[in-house]
Simulated scan of single mutants.
Amino acid sequence: MKKRGDWTVISKEKMYDNPWIAVYHNIVRDPSENPGIYGHVHFKNRAIAILPVDENLNTCMVGQFRFPLNSYSWEIPEGGASLGTDPLEGAKRELREETGLKAGIFKPFLEMDLSNSVTDESSVSYIALELSEGRPEADSTENLQRRKIPLFKAFQWVEERKIRDALSVASLIKLQLIMYKNNIREYPALLDYFKHFNPRKDNDNPSVD
């Protein structure tokens, strides 16, 4: 038996495994000592999202069909980085592959735990500034559309539910909040803010009384 917080794991069995995820079946005792089961999914990559913003306050949206949902989705550029590797390098790679863009400034500005009742997947979102254009290098599993739109239109798409992807929604709302709180309406002010942005300080979890 092994304690996992206030849960007791009596046994754990791997039911499925591939290069991206592993699915486990746990026999447990819950915090009230009742017997039960708990299934969870282990992710072998950290989710990465990149929010590029150019000097005219435009961003780049990526459209693609999402197999699990059987529907089309507009998102900011996203991908994954293997656990134990530098997520920044993954962010640079995904931005280049999906949009052709390179950035002089990458700053992490949002970290999240995704679907934390059944998975251990975590994510980090980067803002990408000082952009330069190149040629996209999407892999064979991706049939992507790319659309440059004003950043404020992307905020509107979130409100209109045209963007439903969780990483995209959270990243756009976080940036909108930063811009609102700091009265940022033009690119130079946005660039200056993130040049002095301290991810460690700003992303610390506050204590909860």
Rank of each mutant, 00 (worst) to 15 (best):
R164N: 14
N34E: 10
K174N: 08
V53D: 00
V41D: 00
Y193S: 08
N205T: 15
R93G: 07
A47S: 10
Q145T: 06
P19M: 10
Y193V: 11
F67I: 06
T99I: 05
S117G: 11
A138E: 03
I48R: 01
I163Y: 01
P35L: 11
L95C: 09
H40W: 15
S171W: 00
L177F: 13
A128C: 04
N143H: 03
Y126V: 03
F106W: 03
L191M: 07
W20G: 12
K195E: 12
S73H: 02
A189L: 15
V23P: 01
P35E: 12
Y72C: 00
L177D: 14
E98F: 05
I21K: 07
Y38D: 10
K2W: 14
H25S: 09
Y193I: 10
N205F: 15
F43M: 05
P87Q: 04
Y193E: 08
E121N: 13
R146H: 02
I37Q: 14
P136W: 00
S207N: 12
E160M: 11
I76L: 15
N182F: 12
V118C: 13
E55M: 08
V208D: 08
D120S: 12
T119Q: 03
E98V: 01
L69H: 04
W74C: 00
W74D: 05
P68V: 08
E142S: 10
G39M: 13
H25W: 11
H40Q: 14
N203R: 15
R147M: 11
F67S: 08
F106I: 06
K181L: 15
R93L: 10
H40K: 15
D86R: 05
L144K: 02
G5Y: 05
E137G: 07
D139R: 07
A128V: 05
F109C: 07
G90V: 12
I76K: 02
E94Y: 11
D139P: 02
N26S: 10
V9S: 04
K153P: 03
K102Y: 08
S115V: 11
I21L: 09
Y38R: 08
I105E: 05
K195W: 11
N203Q: 15
K44Q: 05
Q156F: 10
N205Q: 15
V169M: 03
S168Q: 01
S171N: 01
Q64E: 14
D17P: 10
I184Y: 03
I50D: 02
W7L: 07
V9H: 02
L88P: 04
W20H: 14
L57G: 02
A49N: 02
L83F: 13
G104F: 07
N34F: 13
T59C: 09
I127E: 00
E55C: 06
W20K: 11
E133R: 06
H40M: 14
E137S: 08
I184S: 06
L131M: 00
